[in-house]
């Protein structure tokens, strides 16, 4: 029985013809990149299996790296990595926060774009240049400062050095190449990165609320404390963690500055420390297959740590940005 009502046209979301080719092509490119990038992670994980099954949990606690004695472990380098990153964040966090506040709240509006570009440029400067800056310019001064810290705060285990603080001629070689010196150079590297994130979040503060605070009689600091900082809290935390992720993975500046050493020590001012990335850069050349696997495991551990830190940072930053949509 023929119905007089027209039957609805069948709609299909399925691509046909050229569109189908495009979709398949794009999918193929995506799959290729997925295989390449994901392949690295999978490869690192796969290479870690023999090392981890050979050394077990001792790989994380053993501090020595003596392939000839079949004793391998990343305990010392993990501690060194964390202490270098800790020193870097100790310097980078307050300076990044202050600079971001200055650019977004204090600087005259005319020079603001220039300052923003300068911070971006600072982030683009290669790490080898900060490494040379840290090694040739800063390290002698950092060593002198280390001596002063040792003399006056040496009773704190963090600042103690195995040397005589009050020697007539101070032994500079005990104070250079330390986690402290490397941390300063790494701080220069991560500072612009955290600063850029913080500034971006600060600049998204709803202007209405800022003006409301000022209209109620708040001083500029009052306005910052009650509006800008609470609003930008996610950006502060996220930017710091992004910087931390970068600081943990930094290689070349650290390699240039430190004197490699495989001892777990909390004494950040003393000569000799190491980081995972510097260990890889220093030991890959003469590594046998087994040691290469151990180095890859160390790299995998480093990758996992930075991945966790970066992912947390990204989540925190994006959550803080989602609040930016609630301006009235």
């Amino acid at each position: 029985m023929p119905s007089d009502r027209p039957t609805p046209r069948r709609l299909s979301r399925k691509a046909t013809g050229g569109d189908r080719v495009f979709e398949i092509g794009a999918r193929a490119v995506g799959a290729t990149v997925l295989v390449i990038t994901g392949g690295i992670g999978a490869f690192l994980a796969w290479q870690s299996v023999p090392t981890l099954s050979r050394y077990g949990w001792g790989f994380f606690t053993e501090s020595a790296w003596q392939p000839e004695a079949d004793v391998l472990g990343i305990g010392a380098v993990l501690v060194g990595t964390v202490s270098i990153a800790g020193v870097a964040m100790f310097f980078a966090f307050p300076l990044a926060l202050l600079t971001a506040l200055y650019i977004s709240e204090y600087a005259p509006a005319g020079v603001r774009p220039t300052l923003v570009s300068l911070v971006d440029l600072m982030a683009a400067v290669p790490s080898i240049i900060y490494g040379m800056w840290g090694y040739f310019l800063v390290m002698p001064h950092a060593a002198a400062f280390s001596l002063w810290l040792h003399q006056h705060l040496g009773w704190i285990p963090l600042f103690s050095v195995e040397a005589d603080p009050n020697a007539a001629v101070w032994d500079q070689t005990r104070y250079i190449g330390s986690a402290f010196c490397a941390g300063i150079a790494v701080a220069m590297m991560v500072l612009p990165m955290s600063c850029a994130v913080m500034r971006q979040v600060f600049s998204q503060t709803p202007p209405g609320e800022k003006e409301a605070a000022l209209a109620l009689g708040a001083t500029r600091w009052g306005m910052i404390r009650s509006v800008v900082l609470p609003f930008g809290r996610g950006g502060i935390i996220g930017g710091t963690m992004l910087g931390l992720g970068r600081a943990l993975g930094e290689t070349i500046a650290v390699l240039l500055i430190i004197s490699p050493d495989f001892v777990v020590k909390p004494r950040i001012l003393e000569v000799g420390t190491n980081s995972v990335s510097a260990l890889i850069a220093g030991r890959f050349g003469d590594a046998s297959a087994a040691q290469l696997s151990a180095l890859l495991t160390a790299g995998f551990v480093l990758f996992l740590i930075t991945l966790v830190v970066n992912t947390l940072a990204a989540v925190i930053v994006s959550r803080s940005r989602s609040g930016a949509g609630t301006d009235a």
């Binding site: 995506g30 997925l34 690295i40 992670g41 290479q47 990335s277 790299g299 930075t306």
Partner: peptide
């Protein structure tokens, strides 16, 4: 759904320290 997977992996791989990228190519 596949695009979400690719985006997640790509974002994760930006965390790869450059030395590890070098070590990967060196090994392979």
């Amino acid at each position: 759904r596949f695009g979400v997977v690719v985006r997640t992996i790509v974002e994760a791989m930006t965390a790869l320290p450059s030395i590890v990228a070098g070590l990967f190519v060196y090994t392979v």
